[in-house]
Every structure is written in structure tokens, then in C-alpha cells.
Amino acid sequence: MDSETITRALSRIAHEILERNKGAKELRIIGIRTRGIHIARRLADKIQELEGIKPPLGTLDITLYRDDFRRKTDWPSVQKTEIAFSVEEKNVILVDDVLYTGRTTRAAIDAIMDYGRPDFIQLAVLVDRGGHRELPIQADYVGTRVMTVRTQKVEVLIKELDGRDEVIILQLGSPNEAR
């Protein structure tokens, strides 16, 4: 995916979100650290452009909810979660860059539930890596679907962090490096 296809995909997802949730009024958008935050912000901007309402935007760090606590390898430090609004009876759109095993999403759902009881939680991802799901989780909005093997890695580059927008698939040297 290049910059143009990414922008087009996000624009389509914004339309789909508005259609399904009947407007932007009850929407709360929460990006999962790190790259999901930037994708979430772009979606919020697009929704504002389309509807004239900017849905409240939050960021979520799922480190404290991970299930591989005692299998740590390169353990990330805990970052701040900032959700400055109530999720009670709202339509929460969780945003991440890649959906792969589903474990991050599980952790994120658990985290959101600790903030209250939303009416809906929906999942938007830029890339859905099929075939490797470890939990019964699926995305509601998908930028693109790719079929990969475990020895490959999907990398999402974001202008805000990496200087350009691109999705690339890397072949890893050894299967052990696969995440």
C-alpha cells in the first residue's frame, strides 16, 4: 500500500463508520498505541470533514493488559492512556494499524471495559493479516486484507512517525524472528 491507497482506504472506512453508526454523534475514537493513535486521528479528522463534528479522541496503552506477561522478551515500558471522556453508552471505535493474532485487540477491549460500558465497541484496522488469528476476533472496518505466512512481517509506516505512509511486507531471516 502506498500513501494514496492508504488515504483512500481511511476515507472509505470513515464513510463506513458514519453509515453504520448513523452519524458521528455517539462516536468515540480510541487509538491503540503507538501507530493506531495516528490512524485514529486521521479517521477523526476525516469524520469531521464529512460530518462537521469531531468525535472525541483517546489513546490507549495496552501494556498492563497483555497476556504474555511472563514471556517477556523486549518488554515495552508502560505509556500513558488518555481517555478524557466517558465511554458509557457510546459507540467506541478502536483503531489499530494491523490485526494479526487478535491478542492486542482482546487486551484493548478489556481495557475499554474498565472505563465503563459502551453500547458498542467496533474495530477499525488498516491491515488485516488473515489466517493467524488466535482468538475469535474480527475487524469491522478493514483497509486491506493480506494473506501472509508467519515468517513475514507486516510493517506500517506512518508519515507522523516514519516520514512517509506505506505498508510493506518483509520476509524475516529466520522463523524465530516472527512476531
Binding site: 493488559y65 497483555r66 506477561f69 492512556t81 474498565d114 472505563y115
Partner: peptide, 25 residues
């Protein structure tokens, strides 16, 4: 690092459900 991590932990204490599963088990 401890102080930075404590900032994230403080946010947990400000929620309605003041609990995370990090040290489960």
C-alpha cells in the same frame, strides 16, 4: 522510568474501575 511509569499508574487510579490485570497470578 519509575516516575514515568507511575504517571500511567496514576491514570489507572483515576478510573471508575481502578484495576488492571498486569500482575494476575
Amino acid at each position: 522510568l519509575i516516575l514515568d511509569t507511575a504517571e500511567s499508574m496514576k491514570e489507572v487510579s483515576e478510573r471508575d474501575v481502578k484495576k488492571v490485570p498486569a500482575l494476575k497470578g
